[in-house]
């Protein structure tokens, strides 16, 4: 595990750059992670998806299924990919401070 500087705050990340403790996530962390995922700027539309994923994770301990993200944010999959080029699982979930997904997903 390596440490990475997120605007003055040092956080542990895994080999693929996912933060390890979702409790230490904040908007600055999200902005830094967004740079890695080809999202130069987090707009309101991005935040809508990021916040939905994060709230679901805090409640249930897993990422929401992609179709639920679409339904709850009123976006189709193409729009999600337009916002997050690396996809909902790799891109949006990472920016929302979730650890890397596990299991056969």
């Amino acid at each position: 595990m390596a440490l990475r500087d997120f605007g003055g705050q040092e956080l542990e990340i895994d080999e693929d750059g996912f933060i390890q403790d979702p409790g230490q996530w904040n908007q600055t962390v999200a902005t830094v992670l967004a740079q890695d995922e080809e999202v130069p700027e987090l707009t309101d539309e991005h935040w809508k998806v990021v916040n939905m994923i994060r709230e679901y994770y805090l409640k249930f301990g897993i990422a929401p299924m992609v179709r639920k993200v679409c339904k709850d944010t009123g976006k189709d999959l193409k729009q999600i990919y337009a916002l997050f080029p690396s996809g909902p699982a790799k891109g949006a979930c990472k920016i929302a401070g979730l650890p890397k997904p596990t299991g056969c997903v």
Binding site: F60, G61, I62, M65, K100, P101, T102, G103, C104, V105
Partner: peptide
């Protein structure tokens, strides 16, 4: 760590808890 250990601790290798399962 993200497999059998998580499976035994949370109920699923995905981290899915019984509450999450019910929601799904």
């Amino acid at each position: 760590k993200g497999g059998t250990v998580k499976h035994l601790a949370t109920g699923s290798s995905t981290g899915m808890t019984p509450a999450a399962f019910a929601d799904l």
